[in-house]
């Protein structure tokens, strides 16, 4: 593969995944998921290509967050199959789950930083425990990633000393420290004050530019339109409509999507 076609290969901050450029890095086939009698995902087929940025939109309750949480095994699904960067998702095997989760990073709406650990330790914890990274190497990498999200000087700060936007950027650095092939972003700006949304989205956008594969559930339609390669509209547990952002936002075909988009402008 040439360096020009693969931005992540030229950027030392991101580690390239196993999957080749242009090949699917997340494969979801006929996925069904129920909470008790309530079926939330009613057969999802979705391939996400390496380096692709996919935005998932839809009403609350449409199953978009559940879909994201299935991809790293936070939710168990009943039917279908799922692989990430070549690793199949097997709920019964703790070992397989840990391997898969090393390929997928997740950013949460509520940041979920570890409040008892400093920013640097938040970023270094998982690489130390799971990847057995050497301490000096681990710290250098953590500092590099914190610098990448614009928080180099916060290495020794505690999470509760940071603003929401800063905490979320630390969470991004923490996820990147595991060298994931894919980043899942679950409404990562929904808990932020409006003036802090931009700083987080700028980091996400720069990751997209560097070739990171991103799957994000978002309410920031402007951001989805600008950054996403593909937008997926979910409705009642199914992928109702999908396509490039211009056609999804500019020329919605189904009445449900039209109604959803017009409801945002009210």
């Amino acid at each position: 593969m040439s360096a020009g076609a693969d931005p992540s290969a030229t950027n030392p901050v991101l580690v390239p995944p196993h999957t080749e450029v242009g090949a699917p890095i997340v494969r979801i086939t006929a996925l069904r998921k129920s909470f008790g009698d309530n079926e939330v995902l009613k057969g999802i087929d979705l391939d996400v290509m390496r380096g692709e940025v996919v935005a998932v939109i839809g009403k609350s309750g449409s199953g978009k967050s559940t879909l994201l949480r299935c991809i790293n095994g936070l939710e168990a699904f009943q039917e279908g199959s799922l692989t990430v960067d070549g690793k199949p998702l097997l709920h019964e095997s703790a070992q397989a789950m840990r391997e898969l989760r090393q390929r997928v990073g997740m950013i949460f709406q509520s940041f979920n930083l570890f409040p008892h650990l400093s920013v640097g330790r938040n970023v270094m914890l998982a690489p130390r425990l799971v990847k057995k990274r050497r301490p000096d190497e681990n710290e250098a990498r953590a500092r590099q990633l914190l610098d990448r999200v614009g928080l180099a000087e916060k290495f020794d700060a505690m999470p509760d000393q940071l603003s929401g936007g800063q905490q979320q950027r630390v969470a991004i650095a923490r996820a990147l420290a595991m060298d994931p092939a894919v980043l899942l972003c679950d409404e990562i700006t929904s808990a932020l004050d409006p003036e802090l949304v931009g700083e987080v989205l700028r980091v996400v956008e720069s990751l997209a530019e560097d070739g990171m594969t991103l799957l994000m559930v978002t309410h920031e339609m402007g951001f989805a339109r600008k950054v996403a390669d593909r937008v997926i509209f979910m409705h009642q547990g199914r992928v109702h409509e999908s396509g490039p952002p211009d056609s999804i936002f500019g020329a919605p075909r189904t009445p449900e999507l039209k109604q959803f988009l017009s409801s945002l402008h009210e």
Binding site: G73, M106, L113, F114, L125, A126, L129, V130, R174
Partner: peptide, 30 residues
Amino acid sequence: VPRGQWEASASLALGFGQQLAHVVLPQALR
């Protein structure tokens, strides 16, 4: 201890024992 702490540590590929020892119990202790 908030459920998000379990979820975040699981997402970082920590095993059950690691989650307990490094994330959940230190917070529960306080």
